[in-house]
Design a binder for these strands. Structure first.
Length: 649
RNA sequence: GCCAGUGUAGCUCAGCCGGCAGAGCGAAUCCUUCGUAAGGAUUAGGUCGGGGGUUCAAAUCCCUCCACUGGCUCCA
C-alpha cells in the first residue's frame, strides 16, 4: 500500500507505507537523503528513522534547518548525561528535552555543586572531542522494561515505558560510546557536531512537574553548531542583564524592596514621579471608558470574601492575609471586586443606569510563595489600576470591544507589543459550564471583532470567569501578564446583584473586571526593561537638567528654571567641570540638558543637548519650552526636539 | 514552599587556606570656575544580613533564621 506525502513546496510524493523519513528523503534526492538529520511530520519533529504510516505532511530537516538546532541540543543533553554518569555513576536520569534556549536534564540521586558542574562540563567537552557516533536501536518494550530493572535500574524510565509508551510494541534507544538512553529522538549523527557546549544553571524540578512528586535536580545547558554562536549567545544573555529593571531601578533611584517588607515596593520620589504620570494617564483612559473613580479600604472583615467566593477559591492557596482580632476575623483585600460589588449593591439601579462603572487604584495583598518574588514583576503588595463595570447582558459585546480598543491604543502609545491570551475555565471555578461557555464566547467574539490575534490558554482563567490576558515579555524572555479583561456571571449571582429591567422585574447584571496596565509595580518594571531606563520625556523622572558652565551662571540658571513651569527640571549647581556634569546627566538618563555659559547668558539663549549626544546652540529658551511641552503632551516615545530642529536647517 | 547560589561603606565590588575591615564611585569640606561623557586635595562613612556555636582569636569555619538571584511549582 502506498501513502501520499505532502512536501513543503506543495507537491506530493507517493511512497510505500512504513517508509522512514530518511527513505523518503532519498526518494526526493540522494543528496538530501544523506544529509537528513530528522523530519518534521505534521508539525512534529521526529527522528529520521520514524516510519510514515498514513498520509502526512513532511519536511526534511538537514544541517540548514531551524529544527537542526533542536536535534543538536537533544544530543547535547545526552552528552551531558553521559558525562554525568561517568563522574557520578549512581545518578538516575529522568527526562532531558531540548528547549528554546538549549536543553535541560532532570536527574535524581545525585548532589551537585558548581564545581561538579565544571567537571561535568569538561568531561562533556571530551565526549564532543571524541566525536562519538550516535546510533539508534529499537527494542521490544518488554525488553526495555527489563533493561531498566536489571542492567540499569531506573524507575523514571520504567514509568515512561509504562505510561507514555504503553501503546508501543517497540521503543527506541540512542547510544553513543558506552552511553545508552531511552529516547524518541531525533539526534544528530555524532557528538562532534556540537561546536559550542555550556552548562548554565542548576535548579530543582519536580518529577512530571507535580509539587507532590519527588524533587529532581535540573541542570540547564545549551549547545550550538559553533563556538562562536555559543559566545554570542552568552554575550546576549549578559547584555539582557543590563536592561534588568532591578538594576536600572537601583541606578535611577526609583524604588526599593527592603528586607523589612519582602514583596512590597517602596517608591522613591523618582519612582513616584513616573508612577504618577502613569496614574494620570490611566485616569484619562478610564474617563474615556466612562468609569467613576472610587476608593475602598484594604482592611475588611472576612465575611465580605466569604460571600463573594474569594475566600474559598482564592484563599485556598494560602494567599490570603487573614488574622483574628478581638474575636473577629479580618483580612487584607486580595482583589477589589467584592468592595466594588458592595458599592453597586448599595443602590437599586434601573436598566437605564447601566453600565455602572467603578475604577480604583486599589492596593491589594497576596501572600505569594517566598521563592516566587521577583523584583517589581512578582510582589505581595500591589496597586492595580482596577475597574469593574456592571452591565446588562445585551451590553457585553459593546463593553468588551470598547475596552479592548482603548487597551490597543494604550499599548501602542507605549510602543509595547502585547500578546493576547484567552484563558478558559480551570479546575477551581464557580458557576455552571453553560455560563462559562457564554462568557468565553463573548470574549472570543470581542477579540475577533477587533481583529486581534490571540492564543488560547486552557484552564488559566480566574475562578469567577474567563479572561483576556495581555502579556509583555521581559529581558529574560519571560512573559508577564499586565492588563486583563475578564467577564464574570458568577460574582453577581453569589452576591445577588440586581437591576430593575424594562419589565419592572429584577435582573442579574454581568460584571466586567479589567485592568489596563495591570499593576503599577509590574508595569513600571515592564517600562524599565522596555525602554532600558531611557524613558520617553513625559515619563522621565527628571526631564531637563540645566548645566551652568561655571558658578557665574547660577543666577541665569535659576531664572531659566523658573520659566520651565510644569517640567521636571533641576540645576547641576555643584562646582565641577562641564564634562563631568554632562556625564552625570547621561548616567541619570535625563532626556535633555540645557547648557549655559557666559555667551548664552549674554544673548539670553541656551545650548541644548539630548541623551543621544545631539547638540544645538543659540536656542531661544521660550521656543525650547514650547517644543518640550508639545513633546510631553504628545507622549512622544523618544526625545525628538533636536532631531526635528536639525532637519529644518 | 523546593533545589542551587549570593549577602562586606549610600552604590559597585575585593578580602573568605582564621590574626588590626579595604578600593573605586558617590557624599562633605577646601582649591579650581572650567564650553559638550570623569580637574585636584582632605575628611567622614561599617552591628561584614540577624542569632547561636567552634577557637586564644571569626567577615573568613559550623549550625540556624532572614532577604535576594536563577529555576521548579503557583499567579497581575
Amino acid at each position: 500500500m502506498s501513502i501520499s506525502v505532502r512536501l513543503p513546496d506543495g507537491s506530493t510524493l507517493d511512497v510505500e507505507e512504513g517508509a522512514t523519513v530518511q527513505e523518503v528523503a532519498y526518494e526526493i534526492g540522494p543528496g538530501l537523503g544523506s544529509d537528513t538529520v530528522a523530519g518534521v511530520v505534521d508539525g512534529t519533529l521526529v527522528a529520521r528513522e520514524e516510519t510514515l504510516d498514513s498520509d502526512v505532511s513532511l519536511e526534511i530537516v538537514t544541517d540548514d534547518s531551524d529544527e537542526y538546532l533542536d536535534a543538536l541540543r537533544h544530543t547535547a543533553a545526552h552528552v551531558f548525561a553521559q558525562a554525568l554518569l561517568r563522574l557520578h555513576p549512581d545518578a538516575k536520569l529522568a527526562i532531558g528535552p531540548w528547549t528554546d534556549d538549549g536543553f535541560y536534564y532532570d536527574i535524581a540521586h545525585v548532589d551537585l555543586d558548581e564545581d561538579d558542574l565544571k567537571q561535568i562540563e569538561a568531561e562533556a567537552h571530551r565526549i564532543i572531542e571524541a566525536d562519538l557516533t550516535v546510533d539508534r536501536l529499537e527494542m521490544e518494550r518488554a525488553d526495555a522494561i527489563e533493561y531498566y530493572e536489571e542492567a540499569a535500574p531506573n524507575r523514571f524510565k520504567r514509568e515512561i515505558l509504562a505510561e507514555e509508551a504503553s501503546g508501543e510494541a517497540t521503543v527506541s534507544f540512542y547510544e553513543q560510546g558506552e552511553f545508552r538512553d531511552l529516547c524518541r529522538g531525533p539526534h544528530v549523527r555524532s557528538t562532534g557536531e556540537i561546536g559550542g557546549f555550556a552548562l548554565l544553571e542548576m535548579s530543582a524540578a519536580y518529577w512530571r512537574g507535580d509539587e507532590s512528586n519527588e524533587t529532581l535536580t535540573r541542570v540547564y545547558g545549551t549547545a550550538f553548531p559553533s563556538e562562536a554562536e555559543l559566545e554570542s549567545f552568552l554575550e546576549r544573555r549578559e547584555a539582557a542583564k543590563e536592561r534588568d529593571h532591578r538594576r536600572i531601578g537601583q541606578e535611577m533611584d526609583l524604588f526599593s524592596i527592603p528586607e523589612h517588607s519582602p514583596g512590597c515596593v517602596h517608591f522613591h520620589p523618582n519612582g513616584m514621579r513616573v508612577r504618577r504620570e502613569l496614574e494620570e494617564y490611566v485616569r484619562t483612559k478610564n474617563e474615556e471608558l466612562g468609569y467613576e473613580e472610587v476608593w475602598t479600604p484594604e482592611l475588611n472583615k472576612k465575611e465580605l470574601w466569604q460571600k463573594s467566593g474569594h475566600l474559598d477559591f482564592f484563599g485556598a492557596e494560602g494567599e490570603f492575609y487573614l488574622w483574628e482580632q478581638d474575636g473577629d476575623e479580618y483580612g487584607l483585600k486580595p482583589m477589589n471586586c467584592a468592595n466594588h460589588a458592595y458599592l453597586y449593591d448599595r443602590e437599586k439601579w434601573s436598566y437605564r443606569d447601566l453600565p455602572i462603572r467603578f475604577s480604583e487604584f486599589g492596593t491589594v495583598y497576596r501572600n505569594e510563595q517566598s521563592g516566587e518574588l521577583s523584583g517589581l514583576f512578582r510582589v505581595r503588595g500591589m496597586t492595580q489600576d482596577d475597574g469593574h463595570a456592571f452591565i446588562r447582558p445585551d451590553q457585553i459585546q459593546a463593553e468588551i470591544t470598547h475596552t479592548l480598543s482603548i487597551i490597543e491604543e494604550l499599548y501602542g502609545e507605549f510602543g509595547l507589543e502585547a500578546v493576547y491570551k484567552l484563558e478558559t475555565k480551570g479546575d477551581h471555578s464557580v458557576g455552571s459550564d453553560d455560563i462559562w461557555a457564554r462568557a468565553t464566547e463573548a470574549l472570543r467574539d470581542a477579540l475577533e471583532e477587533r481583529g486581534l490575534e490571540y492564543e488560547i490558554e486552557e484552564g488559566e482563567a480566574a475562578f469567577y470567569g474567563p479572561k483576556i490576558g495581555l502579556d509583555a515579555v521581559d529581558v529574560l524572555g519571560r512573559e508577564w501578564t499586565v492588563g486583563t479583561v475578564q467577564l464574570d456571571f458568577n460574582i453577581p449571582e453569589r452576591l445577588d446583584l440586581i437591576y430593575i429591567g424594562e419589565d419592572n422585574r429584577e435582573h442579574r447584571p454581568v460584571m466586567v473586571h479589567r485592568a489596563l496596565l495591570g499593576t503599577f509595580e509590574r508595569f513600571l518594571g515592564v517600562m524599565l526593561e522596555h525602554f532600558g531606563g531611557d524613558f520617553p520625556t513625559w515619563l522621565a523622572p527628571e526631564q531637563v537638567r540645566i548645566l551652568p558652565i561655571s558658578d557665574d551662571q547660577l543666577e541665569y540658571a535659576n531664572a531659566l528654571a523658573d520659566t520651565f513651569t510644569g517640567v521636571r527640571v533641576t540645576i547641576a549647581d555643584r562646582s565641577s567641570t562641564l564634562g563631568r556634569k554632562i556625564q552625570a546627566a547621561h548616567d541619570d538618563r535625563v532626556p535633555y540638558m540645557v547648557i549655559i555659559g557666559g555667551n548664552e547668558e549674554e544673548s539670553g539663549t541656551i545650548s541644548i543637548r539630548d541623551r543621544f549626544e545631539r547638540e544645538l546652540d543659540d536656542i531661544d529658551p521660550a521656543a525650547f519650552k514650547r517644543a518640550l511641552d508639545e513633546e510631553i503632551a504628545a507622549k512622544r516615545l523618544e526625545p525628538a526636539i533636536i532631531e526635528t530642529w536639525s532637519d529644518h536647517e
